[in-house]
């Protein structure tokens, strides 16, 4: 029992709980009305603290520029609200370009990362070849390497390969996530071999078994890994910031930092840009809360 637990935190501590998600939280526990009131109060206080910054940002973005800097602060300005900040940000800035760049980069990174990692994990889990153990050990060791310490040599390398300020330059270094190989291999290890055996007798090759049997059985974990990679790629700042200087190539997080200086003190427009950049994932979360919660929890725990 203890051995599987230490070796396998993701499946033992998380998958059971994550799977029970549909059943909701434990309802067997009973509390006194007073205790219940205390809990709701606690939740509400925390919720107010966590919502206030977002609410204030949204309010600011809906004000006329002149109404953003009043003393004392006005929650609802006399003149009412406007979408002016949004329309001018969308019309004048590079926001749309950055949005497209972010979408392209994030999708390509997610698809390629999951493909590379899943194939490698299958190779490590299901095939035998010389050096397999050594290569897997090398991959697992990579989990310990923080990407941040590679920026200086990686930048120099990309410049000498002529990849600075290119999409490839932004994308390629983001494709390596050794932790995901580890998580996927652990999952593949748990899939019974009988199905593959049957397919093999029918003459299916290695690749067909991988694509037609193992991958479909792994939909849940592939979704989890994809979600995790997607969130990280969409929000990645440091590497795209270092490798791009051309505003036409910037992703949203990098471009937004330029907004900071170019908009000066136009707070409504700054807030509108910030909100537009944050919106896609928040909306996605509203639609797919259960999947995202499970994906983040599964990969988050398995990734160490």
């Amino acid at each position: 029992m203890t051995t599987t637990e230490t070796a396998n935190p993701a499946t033992t501590t998380v998958l059971p709980g994550a799977g029970r998600e549909t059943a909701g939280p434990s309802t067997v526990q009973r509390y006194t009305p007073l205790a219940r009131a205390g809990m709701v109060t606690g939740l509400a206080v925390l919720a107010v603290l966590w919502l206030a910054p977002l609410v204030w940002a949204v309010l600011t973005s809906l004000k006329y520029e002149a109404d953003t800097t009043t003393v004392p602060l006005e929650v609802v300005p006399e003149r009412g609200f406007t979408l002016e900040a949004y329309t001018s940000v969308l019309a004048n800035g590079n926001l749309v370009t950055w949005f497209v760049n972010s979408t392209v980069v994030t999708l390509v990174v997610t698809v390629l990362t999951v493909a590379l990692c899943a194939a490698a994990a299958y190779g490590f889990s299901r095939t035998r070849f010389r050096g397999r153990r050594a290569l897997f050990a090398l991959t697992v060791a990579g989990i310990m390497v923080p990407p941040q310490i590679l920026i200086v040599p990686l930048y120099r390398q990309m410049v000498s390969w002529g990849l600075a300020d290119t999409y490839l330059g932004i994308i390629l270094p983001q494709l390596v996530v050794p932790a995901m190989v580890f998580i996927l291999k652990k999952f593949f290890d748990g899939i019974p071999h009988e199905l593959e055996e049957a397919a093999r007798i029918d003459g299916a090759g290695q690749l067909r078994i991988f694509l037609q049997i193992v991958l479909p059985l792994s939909r849940s974990i592939l979704a989890a890994v994809s979600i995790f990679v997607f969130i990280h790629a969409w929000n990645n700042f440091l590497w795209p910031f270092i490798i791009t200087s051309d505003p036409a190539l910037m992703t949203l997080p990098v471009g937004l930092v330029q907004v900071q200086s170019s908009f000066g003190v136009r707070y409504a427009q700054i807030m509108a840009s910030a909100i537009l950049a944050g919106l896609p994932l928040v909306v996605a979360f509203m639609l797919f809360q259960r999947q995202i919660v499970r994906g983040v929890a599964t990969t988050g725990l398995g990734g160490t």
Binding site: T127, P153, Q157, E196, Q206
Partner: peptide, 29 residues
């Protein structure tokens, strides 16, 4: 059950990218 040959080809693409963008910069640094 899984003694299939050619397993290296599943691992190779990842290893190439890993070598180019993690291992090499690590040594280069």
């Amino acid at each position: 059950l899984v003694g299939g040959r050619g397993g290296i080809w599943f691992v190779l693409p990842f290893m190439v990218v890993y070598a180019a963008f993690v291992l090499w910069p690590l040594l280069y640094g």
